[in-house]
Design a protein around this nucleic acid. Structure first.
Lengths: 204, 204
DNA sequence: CGTATGCTCAAACGATCGTTTGATTCCCAC
DNA sequence: GTGGGAATCAAACGATCGTTTGAGCATACG
């Protein structure tokens, strides 16, 4: 059925890199297919259009990111001894784990770009494929921060989301020192983000 | 010398709106000049190129924003009884004051877009025209937070910058309720951002 | 009045974009 | 081996982009 699996996969991989580097409009299909080593027409043949390709790049990563986040959240949600740090860990760790595998790190940059874009179509797509995750996390935050009004909670979550997206899109900008393993550096980063977000969410 | 002041001004105003709405590449000169009610060639005549126009849009707003921020910072920098909240106020208030006048509110969105873009030329321009402001604020933060290591401080400032830029770009702006004046709403927002940023910067 | 200067205008330029086409190659079931 | 659908290919399409051109218009100055 698909000797095209290799071609589709190569296109998706090249697209993720170029979209992160030059944006969705900035990366042309000619640059993209040249980088992937496939014919120009292959994108429209396999994905239908450039817009569909963009959606597919998002869907592929978001599906696993969302699954990991919700699985991690399910382990702590509703438990009586769950802390704010536990929930934040469930939110942050899967995103940085994504940075572990090769080009996956670039996806957070693509995600940050999508947040910055105010394109309606893209925002609707994000809302449909991302909204339910944010709702579940928000519900758990509300449980752990009962003293906050709904409006106050939304405010703080919005600010935390902005900080984390900003930081994770530039992950690796603060270079890890020599002798520090990548895993150790990631642990440090996670601890850093959790402490910051926790302070921002729970301050009096 | 210049009956063109009106034309240049109209182009700049329209550019700010369209750049905020559709991005720098997304807004074409034809849309832009049509919105401004000027001829297509006027952009290249008055600014030289589209890139120069982008820089001019930034320069015009950044100059006044930077001036107001540094002036506000100068009033509290180095004083023995200055608090973290004072410095954050100097940073945040001028940006939200910009939102007060007409299309100025859109500039923070343009600024957020510039942060999301990883275009080297734009980042260099931002560094040249914005870096010295960040350095002065960083120095004052370092004075007020002596217990933080240099690396720790950079981390937190980066996160705070991400949160504030995200919030001030109006991405999640919470609508002000009826009956609340715009000035009062702005005061509330400033207080909100200051408390959040202060907690994020100074947590143990 | 004549002319220089700053500005605006419609039109065209070459480049690049996403997409489509029709022929060709590949590969497996029969 | 052969037929046929899937996949790939070079080439072209129409649209849109930023930029340039050269004529036309206005105003100020000698």
């Amino acid at each position: 059925m698909n000797s095209s699996a290799s071609t589709k996969e190569r296109i998706l991989a090249a697209a993720e890199v170029l979209f992160a580097q030059r944006g969705f409009d900035g990366a042309s299909l000619r640059q993209l297919t040249a980088a992937a080593g496939v014919n120009l027409a292959a994108v429209n043949y396999h994905f239908g259009s450039k817009d569909k390709l963009v959606e597919e790049v998002f869907r592929r990563r978001l599906d696993t990111l969302n699954a990991h986040r919700l699985a991690a959240l399910a382990k702590v949600a509703g438990e009586p001894d769950t802390t704010l740090e536990d929930v934040l860990d469930a939110f942050i760790r899967p995103a940085l784990a994504l940075s572990g595998d090769g080009s996956g790190s670039l996806f957070m940059r693509v995600l940050a770009r999508a947040f910055a874009e105010h394109d309606d179509h893209l925002r609707q797509f994000m809302s449909e494929n991302y909204g339910h995750v944010m709702r579940q996390f928000t519900a758990e935050f509300a449980r752990l921060l009962p003293q906050l009004s709904r409006e106050e909670l939304y405010w703080r979550i919005d600010l935390v989301t902005g900080a984390l997206t900003h930081a994770m899109s530039g992950f690796g900008m603060i270079q890890r020192k020599g002798g520090v393993s990548e895993a150790a550096h990631r642990e440090q980063t996670i601890a850093h983000l959790i402490r910051f977000a926790s302070a921002g969410l729970s301050h009096p």
